[in-house]
């Protein structure tokens, strides 16, 4: 059987979900028997070089680069999996969603106590090379169709492992209650 090809990315996340992927410990050796990684921070492949079977997304979208990356993933991956609260619901970054963007930017770059004195020209970063901030943080499913949602902050390594094995082998995913019981 040909190895399944996996891509991963972290958008508006903290890389905690990727840490949780690594948390599968020595099982990563079993994993690479089953799969081949393409675009991912794990192998540092920056752009898609192959069509992938599974795309794993951490984090929601807070800027236009996140959106472009997410769209690329949707184009190149047969099955798209979001992992963690931020990708599913917006998570911590979306706490800004109740505040107008202008107010957030003003506080961050113009009026905040730590910046008031060091930005005399009152510039909000605007270099064309940096991504544009979105009006709010979007969960991934508001931008592309998501096939699988793995909840958690971060999702437990066991959940990620079980889900990956199920996706790769086509076996049914068993979800014992304890896997996603958080309190």
């Amino acid at each position: 059987m040909a190895k399944k090809i996996i891509a991963t990315t972290s958008l508006a996340g903290c890389f905690g979900c990727h840490m949780s992927i690594l948390d599968i410990d020595e099982r990563i050796l079993d994993l690479i028997e089953l799969v081949e990684f393409n675009k991912s921070p794990i192998d540092d492949i920056k752009t898609f070089t192959k069509e992938c079977d599974i795309g794993i997304i951490e984090g929601g979208c807070c800027n236009d680069e996140n959106v472009h990356t997410l769209l690329e993933f949707r184009k190149h991956c047969k099955t798209l999996v979001v992992i963690g609260e931020c990708a599913m619901m917006g998570g911590l970054p979306s706490m800004r969603n109740t505040i107008p963007l202008k107010e957030c930017l003003d506080e961050a770059y113009l009026n905040g106590p730590t910046v008031a004195d060091c930005n005399p020209q009152k510039i909000i970063p605007n270099d064309p090379d940096i991504p544009k901030i979105l009006n709010r943080v979007y969960p991934c499913h508001e931008i592309v169709k998501i096939d699988v949602f793995l909840p958690g902050c971060p999702p437990r390594a066991d959940l990620i492992w079980d889900a990956l094995v199920a996706l790769v082998t086509g076996a049914e995913l068993k979800l014992p209650y304890t896997t996603f019981k958080f309190d």
Binding site: D64, L101, L105, L110, I124, K132, L134
Partner: peptide, 12 residues
């Protein structure tokens, strides 16, 4: 979705 940002940058 990027309109607010562009407006904020332009006015700063």
């Amino acid at each position: 979705a990027v309109k607010d940002y562009e407006a904020a940058v332009a006015s700063a």
